[in-house]
Simulated scan of single mutants.
Amino acid sequence: MIEIGLCGWGDHSELYREAGKDKNKLPAYAQWFRVVEVDSTFYAIQSPQVMEKWAAETPDSFRFVIKAYQGMTGHARGGKGHHPYESEAAMFQAFREAIEPIRAAGKLLAVLFQYPPWFNCTRPNVETLRTAKARMADIPCALEFRNQSWFTNEMSEKTIAFTRREGWIHTVCDEPQAGEGSIPIVEAATDDQFTIVRLHGRNTDGWVSAGQPNWRDVRYLYRYNETELSEWVERLRRLEQLTGTVCVLFNNNSGGDAADNALQLMAMLHQLPPRGSFKLPPPKETAQQLELFE
């Protein structure tokens, strides 16, 4: 099974034309897709009440991939130990308690641990992964790297074997090949039930723009063309033979392209959104997108 969705649901105005001024966009999103990545949890651990609300306002068949809090993956400013919790154990416990309503509703696919570009392949970092996985107990967890050292020629097979052995779900990434802070497409599955695919776009210049004004907007400014999506159709079909569900999440949000590309890929896979048929919007020109930042 291949399920397609987006990273976040609040930035895709084209999906909500019929919702009027209703600020509650998740139910409208769920008319188009059956899965979503929750990104707000990266910036702050949400309350269980918020999670309960999200679970209640989505259909029974809807599923969530929830991004791990930045303190759990070493992104927090100041490095390890800089988070508003008395200990790392307390931080992990707070996160587990927060997501419990979604898990109890049977709507949790996985928690996504995306590690930063400086998290390289070393013995201490391997132990960090083991500790994180142990603290999550039996909650399904997906692993995404942003450092190339995990997937060099000599390490790629070892990394995949470690991921499988330790019970992590492999995340296949499509992102710009921009040096040490990016990883290649590693077409593999480490879990019989579930594999994540995250499509970040291929804006090489934007990928290395951290620290510049609007860098988050520039990094994910990209629209996949039909040829690129056709290549992914073939990859997804191969992955589908290795794992129960392949969850595809589009993260190329900056120019409003994620929803369009997701619907386009669904059409190529002969899928329909939950609401039924749809009409693809006309293609955008890259130049028009870039004008947003002039």
Rank of each mutant, 00 (worst) to 15 (best):
M1D: 07
G10Q: 06
G20I: 08
K21I: 03
P27I: 06
P27C: 08
F33T: 13
F33N: 13
T41I: 02
M51S: 10
M51Y: 09
S61C: 06
R63M: 11
A68K: 11
A68E: 03
G71M: 03
G74W: 05
H75K: 09
G78F: 00
G79R: 11
G79F: 02
K80V: 14
H83P: 01
E86M: 01
S87G: 05
A94I: 06
F95I: 08
E97M: 12
A98D: 02
I102M: 12
A104D: 06
K107I: 03
K107V: 03
L109D: 12
Q114F: 01
Y115C: 03
P124F: 04
R130S: 12
A137K: 13
P140A: 13
L143E: 02
E154S: 15
G167M: 04
H170E: 00
P176H: 12
A178W: 01
V186I: 14
Q193E: 14
Q193S: 15
Q193V: 13
V197M: 06
V197S: 05
D205C: 01
Y224C: 06
T227C: 01
S230K: 14
W232A: 08
E234S: 14
E240C: 01
L242Y: 05
F250Y: 08
N252E: 06
S254R: 08
A258Y: 02
L263M: 11
L265P: 02
A267Q: 11
T286M: 08
E291N: 13
E294C: 04
E294M: 03
